[in-house]
Design a protein around this nucleic acid. Sequence first.
DNA 1: ATAGACCCTTAGGG
DNA 2: ACCCTAAGGGTCT
Length: 450
Amino acid sequence: MGAHKLSDWRKLPLSLTELCIDTTLRCGQSFRWRKISDEWHCVLRGRLISLKQDASHLHYRVTWPKPTGSPVTSSDSIPAAGDGDVDTEQDDTESLLRNYFALSHSLSTLYQQWAASDANFARRAPAFTGIRILNQDAWEALVAFICSSNNNIGRISQMVQKLCIHYGPYIGTIEGEAFHDFPEPQALSGTHVEAHLRELGFGYRAAYIAQTAEIISYLKGADWLLRLRNPESPAFAAPITRPGQNETQSSSSSDETPITYRTAHEALLTLPGVGPKVADCVCLMGLGWGEAVPVDTHVWQIAQRDYHFSTKTKTKTFTKVMYNSVGDHFRSIWGPQAGWAQSVLFTSNLKAFAGQASGAGTKSGIVEEAIVKAEKMVRRSKQAHSLAEDYGMGVVKTDEEEVTTTFVRSRKRRITAVTKVSGSDKKHVGAVEVEVHTRRTSKRLKAAAS
DNA sequence: ATAGACCCTTAGGG
DNA sequence: ACCCTAAGGGTCT
């Protein structure tokens, strides 16, 4: 009843290989989608979008908000002509969705390319198909990822939800749940905002958000953010200029240096609460820079575990030099859409998706990790002990047929992985045992092993 | 350049 | 049953 108009379901031919909304909408890109009785809902550009998917189609429906402040609802006075039947001529929801899901990229083609140039991707991706980078609103991505620092997906989603409820416009209700749009920068500006956000549990991020909102609203302007977009991205393709049209108009930025991924990244770093990782998230998911590779704890783990990135620099802190070198490395193997490939491996590494990992049975993330570490030991059995030091392993035992690795998962846990190898090939055959010990038990184990 | 502090929530071990 | 610790898509000083 709260909605002005509710469209009928429409559908878009789309395979699950090209897009899997169940994965893409849950993997920590957007924090606003909610699943209610098997349908996904979110407000995009002022309208409430509902989605469901089968093997061949993406089904969508739109709920338009009731016009605010107009005493006479025109639709009520107008006879049945257009009521309950959203004008499909005018409705641009399909193009909105094509743009939001960046459907102009062929995901299956990209997966093939990444798999061809990267064995690790080829091994992990089959269980995680259909993961796309969403083309989100840049301002929303900026604020959401400021919230993401030192935080988990659950709480980030709660925080974004609070921003919408307290500062964003109400759009509609579905099964008793209210949906608001994401607030504009001006709505999050003001002297009271920081204190209020602290009350709402934002912690130290409250100041970052309030300050960034102020800067975008009044100092730099919302245009500033939009000018950081990738002009080459299909999502922001310039309006088609006809041959006869004036061309000087399009090159209005003749006095400015052309925008690049690097300059966009640097520009974002000037905002409070925005470091290299958050800047890359905004570049990738809000500004169309496919080569942006956000390096967080997960990606850093992946880089070390699967791509032989070593922590040999004594320092324990993750420096900006290291950050850039990880990103450059992934760009060199995955190419111009490296950020898209990153999201696939990132998702495969999430605990929430651990059940999907590896085809044979459901191995936990811990087991997966143990297998991979053990495999690494197999490949480099000669340097097993030095590697063990690099990776913080406590005990390493190798012989002709079996490799046993024990490494420290946390201070109070040790995990032992046993990988069987077959003769000269030293191929991993999948036999894995994992044990979790208390400190006391592992001490005994260590003694027994040595 | 490099440790700590920073808000808050939850899961798991004592 | 509770307290305690660690960790969760980092950034700032």
